[in-house]
Write a protein that binds this DNA or RNA. Sequence first.
RNA 1: GGGCCUGUAGCUCAGUUGGUUAGAGCGGAGCGCUCAUAACGCUUUGGUCGCAGGUUCGAGUCCUGCCGGGCCUACCA
Length: 573
Amino acid sequence: MTRTLITSALPYINGIKHLGNLVGSQLPADLYARYRRARGDEVMFVCATDEHGTPAELAAARAGQAVADYCAQMHEVQADLARRFGLSFDHFGRSSSPQNHRLTQHLAARLGAAGLIEVVEEEQVYSPADGRFLPDRYIEGTCPNCGYDKARGDQCEECTKQLEPTALIAPRSAISGATDLEVRKTRHLFLRQSALRDRLRDWITSKSDWPVLTTSIALKWLDDGDGLRDRGITRDLDWGIPAQFEGAPWEGMEGKVFYVWFDAPIEYISATAEWAEANGMSEKDWKRWWKTGEGAENVRYVQFMGKDNVPFHTLSFPATLMGSGEDWKLVDYIKSFNYLNYDGGQFSTSQGRGVFMDQALEILPADYWRWWLLSHAPENSDSEFTWENFQQSVNKDLADVLGNFVSRVTKFCRSRFGEEVPEGGENGPAEAALIAALAERLRAYEAHMDAIEIRKAASELRAIWVLGNEYLQEAAPWAAFKQDPARAAAIIRLALNLIRLYAVLSAPFIPEAAGRMLAAMQSADDSWPADVEAALQALAPGHGFRVPELLFAKISDEQREEWQQRFAGGRDA
RNA sequence: GGGCCUGUAGCUCAGUUGGUUAGAGCGGAGCGCUCAUAACGCUUUGGUCGCAGGUUCGAGUCCUGCCGGGCCUACCA
């Protein structure tokens, strides 16, 4: 049996994610996970909240909560939204878990023992008023280049010039506004990625099937300037995984924690360990996914992420695993995404611009969003959400093409034959042509899903739905019924079976609606069709069914305008 | 500044290693059907493939330059 390991980039803990975040990793990862399961793979699909770092501490402070409490609460909020969006994680973990503490410290110790970690002393800006060192971004001041008074310590957004925080005129803390900033010396652990440069390059260049977006970013980092730079993997923060621990091959790291980007990807592994523990399983059960000496050698590992995550997944995380000298499974395929824009601008968490996961579900069920987002996934370039486009796609694809097909078939049968699959008649040339067309499109659909070409897969699925309407038009059971009821029975028997088949094929995209279609057909057979003709005989004459409730409601112009208005002004408006 | 991606019908996008009259869906127009969520089907209308050069028997596809959009540039995550 094929075994597929799937991870989605970890959503950061500080708030509810917007639709751009969703379509950039978790949603396509779920699509693929559902598809691989349907094809019979043994699948391990893990995700988690990414809980460490400065923004989490600040968000907790704003909420007036202890960081640990804030994270615990936000984890539940995100887990609940994930469930309601149908994200079928085998486990949704937390990067703050004890498992991740243990594994992160273990890997760090291994890297230290291998001589891949060194202690570096550097100077950083410290804010006594805030009681913390400030990352460059959290220092504001006047740009020495253009005079913009809200330039950040890493870059001036006005003139785009890159800056050193010490170059700012009249620097102040972006957190408190305090101006009594001082430069202090501090010591940190650095991961000597540069020592692994050749191994990383060999590994990356061996991945000839990766998307350009993925490899070009990785190679840029490997070759830019003096080549891959070493990277600080500790921070002066309270909340995180302690960098000083028993068995650590270094000293003087008391009060420091690992950098969030060091421990976050390790959580992919730890989340699998959490899964095993939560299900009363043993270490062996999760290691067979991650240790090539313990079963993972025949696992195919696919990662999903936005393009901003690529350097960490192609370089620093592999460097961590390679450098440990242990037999950790490295990723086989990285699917990366561009950004989804919102109505002429960017989605923005900080400005509350766009539609957020909780708001989306207040308006419409998950499948509406899943379909639009996946069929417009920003695979090759940034794409844009507009309410007009959303309304048009949902109404045409889901309500008219698929929903109406289910409706016309079931209602016609109920009124002419009653609520069971009619018997009599037999397949003719029209049915043979339909089956041939379906078989061909199914092959194309599978090929696109196998290649994780999401938009192409979506358009192929839609074309499969359209085949049903074309067939009905040509076979015209309403006309046949008058002269030859047996002929009409054969047509409608096939059409009812088509509904079941569509449920199976559509489930990765629209799982909830697919479930209702299957339930209406009163069938538990959701097996992927090996043979189209056979699959279209699953519902035998006499098998009962129900006319389902409206599968997809159309979005009215009034609704569209109302939502457009409601989301025009930002989250709190 | 540097690197990468991108610019194809009104809109959203396909276009394999350069190869006959550039494709799809939506939208527009017309016709048909009447089972159905005024849904469905058929036909049809849309393009100097960002601009200018070049290579070639042949360029949407390769090269150069320019213009526009986007991302990244290592302490946000």
